[in-house]
Design a binder for these strands. Structure first.
Length: 408
DNA sequence: GTGACTCAAAAATCCACAACAGGCA
DNA sequence: CTTGCCTGTTGTGGATTTTTGAGTC
């Protein structure tokens, strides 16, 4: 992929659509994604201005450039001079935002070129704005669904990040680059709520408020149900209340990322080969899991938190799934962003620490079960059994839940 | 450092049957 | 289009079995 729009081949590409795995100019982006309801839901973001092939995840304020995870790592690694650059998360969006809306979405991240800069931007400026104007202050900079023309537009919180990429919680940026749409579990998140450092309030509060559950394409009874890999790997996700681990980009512990890095490094030797940065969260844990559990299992009876990956629906499966790297984890080797270099070799101490933390987390992981059919449960609760198994009505039994007695 | 072994914990399995979903007349 | 019937699938819990992981030698 290069500078040219994958669709028209003429204009400079500015937007990356994960679902289509395509780099598009703003004009084509709007055209393509206004085709139908499904395409409107494709999650897009700015294109990395350095490699021009990956979705940007951060915007470097100093360099005034949008960077993908890999380029960010290379450019802002801990050992590089740019490690102290102030960076801001780049928003994803869906729907068919107009030029004005797009500029609003990204206004806090970058200054869109003037209408005269490029033909593409001219086209952008010429886009008709038929949608109702928005109260930008009501949604810009917050994670919410915005009713824009052609449907909802999802954007995410923009947060400044300072430091090396290692401080980026990969699983958190993952969500952004994946455009994940999450159904929050009805149960309150675990106590490990990520607190908003500025407000001192649980970020999840906002998330709960802002999430649009209706947008969910696929609801899993359990985050482990979908793929052994992704789900196994997403323990952090649920464990931390699901969302905060994905979106709370402010609260970033270096240990977390170290853990993932460590895991990545550990798992990469055999099975991981090219997980996209976008899914390092899933990748990381899944790698850890796959290291000891080569057969990725589907566990039908496990937990019942609700999680959905829009990227795994038919609509989005191509791009998002690829981004997720679930398959890549197994098929490929060294992560592309893990370029051989000193900055990528984690200190063994922190690495082992991270692994230990991971294992502790795994130990404490809980699967909460929810009963989908209370009537069935009620019946099961009173059914007679033999050695735990249901028996036919009238047959001899050794346990009667009603009387709490055993027949022998 | 490595393999064999033990033990505990976790996960999978099994059962019957009402509820449910979908197709068809 | 609605209704009723039929057929196949799903989900439910406790005990048991199997698998996994950690620790020790």
């Amino acid at each position: 992929m290069g500078y040219a729009c994958d669709f028209c081949g003429e204009q400079r590409s500015m937007v990356y659509c994960r679902s289509d795995a395509a780099c598009l100019c703003l004009s084509c982006d709007r055209n393509v994604h206004s085709a139908n309801a499904l395409s409107k839901r494709h999650s897009r973001t700015l294109l990395c201005e350095r490699c021009n092939s990956q979705p940007a995840t951060v915007r470097c304020a100093e360099e005034k450039i949008s960077l993908c995870h890999n380029c960010d790592w290379i450019g802002h690694g801990a050992s590089t001079s740019g490690s102290s650059h102030k960076r801001q998360t780049v928003n994803c969006y869906s729907g068919c935002p107009s030029a004005a809306e797009l500029s609003s979405i990204w206004s806090s991240v970058l200054e869109l070129p003037s209408a005269d800069d490029t033909t593409c931007e001219k086209e952008m400026g010429l886009m008709s704005i038929t949608e109702n104007s928005l109260k930008k202050t009501s949604w810009v900079g917050s994670e919410s669904d915005m009713p824009l023309g052609g449907g909802m537009v999802k954007i995410q919180k923009t947060n400044f990040l300072v430091g090396s990429s290692s401080s980026l919680p990969e699983h958190k940026s993952t969500s952004q680059s994946l455009g994940l749409q999450i159904t929050l579990p009805m149960n309150p998140p675990s106590s490990k709520v990520c607190y908003h450092p500025a407000k001192g309030s649980p970020l999840l509060d906002n998330l709960y408020e802002d999430f649009n559950i209706d947008e969910v394409d696929l609801t899993l009874e359990n985050y482990e149900e979908l793929f052994g890999i992704i789900l196994n790997s997403s323990e952090d996700f649920l464990e931390n209340g699901g969302i905060n681990s994905l979106f709370a980009t402010k609260e970033t512990s270096a240990a977390d990322s170290n853990c993932q890095g460590a895991v990545l490094a550990e798992g990469s030797s055999a099975q991981i080969v090219n997980p996209q940065p976008a899914c390092s969260a899933a990748s990381a844990d899944s790698m850890m899991s796959s290291k000891t559990d080569p057969i990725l299992r589907f566990t039908p009876r496990q937990a019942h938190s609700n999680l959905s990956f829009s990227g795994l629906t038919g609509e989005n499966n191509t791009g998002d799934y690829q981004d997720c790297g679930a398959s890549s984890i197994i098929l490929m080797g060294e992560p592309p962003w893990c370029t051989p270099g000193p900055e990528n070799s984690l200190p063994s101490a922190s690495r082992s620490d991270a692994v230990m933390r991971y294992k502790e987390k795994k130990k404490t992981r809980k699967f909460e079960k929810t009963v989908r059919y209370a009537s069935r449960k009620a019946r099961a609760d009173i059914r007679k059994r033999v050695k735990g198994r249901f028996v036919k009505a009238g047959d001899a039994y050794d346990y009667d839940p009603l009387s709490q007695t055993w027949s022998y």
